[in-house]
């Protein structure tokens, strides 16, 4: 984590710079079908994050050498739009985006029922339109919504949240200042129905007790986000949420 310093990010009453308490999530809004030409799509506003995910497929996998006889291949791309950050984000090859694309694909492959679509390809495109903090979590969550919107069978949704530590206090769902100047960041991808994990990263410094606290925050937050996701899906497709 970057510059741990004298920056006061939690006041004596436990209120964070954006007015939240330690365990609070930022406001979340979900919209499905935001890319009309795609087979499925979703956008998530999560704090000031705005991320759009679109799904194309299942379609023929080409070139042929990428085909798998027994299952579909998942082609996942995470990218930041040039205007998504305070300083312009230069388009082109980027190691960070490549890594996030890979771990996002690894997470989604664990839930998408790929064996139903042998020799085909499913494309998942994640674009960060406005970045605050936790874009990889928002991207992964939005991607699972877009897959659901495309009608692709999954064993569970993926809900991703990051908790961390600022000024020695463990807090849920880090914002930009907390992410930049905080002491730890623990993003997790959680399957809300089974409670299992498909995505896990961490950097910084957490004691065993702090780690457990951050872990528990993520688990609880994922259940809350899942409710919002179910509402958005029920709103478009009807039925019990």
């Amino acid at each position: 984590m970057g510059g741990y310093g004298d920056i006061q990010m939690i006041d004596e009453n436990g209120v964070r710079v954006d007015g939240r308490k330690a365990g609070d999530l930022r406001p979340i809004e979900i919209e499905l079908g935001v890319v009309p030409v795609a087979d499925g799509s979703a956008s998530m506003r999560w704090g000031t994050n705005y991320v759009i995910a679109a799904v194309y497929g299942p379609m023929e996998a080409h070139p042929r050498k990428i085909q798998r006889q027994e299952r579909a291949v998942l082609d996942v791309r995470y990218n930041m739009a040039p205007f998504s950050t305070t300083d312009r984000f230069r388009p082109g090859f980027n190691r960070r985006s490549r890594e996030i694309s890979k771990v996002t694909a690894d997470a989604l492959e664990s839930v998408v029922q790929l064996e139903l679509f042998p020799r085909s390809k499913i494309r998942v495109e994640i674009e960060v339109i406005c970045a605050e903090a936790g874009t990889r979590c928002v991207g992964l969550t939005a991607a699972s919504l877009a897959l659901a919107d495309a009608g692709i069978p999954m064993s569970d949704m993926v809900v991703s949240v990051a908790s961390g530590k600022v000024n020695d206090v463990v807090v849920c769902d880090l914002n930009k200042e907390e992410d930049n100047y905080g002491e730890a960041d623990l993003p997790m991808g959680i399957l809300p129905n089974s409670g299992e994990l498909v995505f896990l990263q961490m950097d910084g410094d957490l004691s065993p007790a702090e780690f457990q606290e951050a872990w528990d925050y993520n688990m609880a937050a994922a259940m809350n986000v899942h409710e919002i996701m179910k509402e958005a899906i029920a709103k478009k497709y009807g039925g019990e949420s």
Partner: peptide, 11 residues
């Protein structure tokens, strides 16, 4: 001026 047609925008 740059224009980006990322794969998000169409198959």
């Amino acid at each position: 001026t740059s224009a980006e047609l990322r794969p998000l925008a169409g198959r």
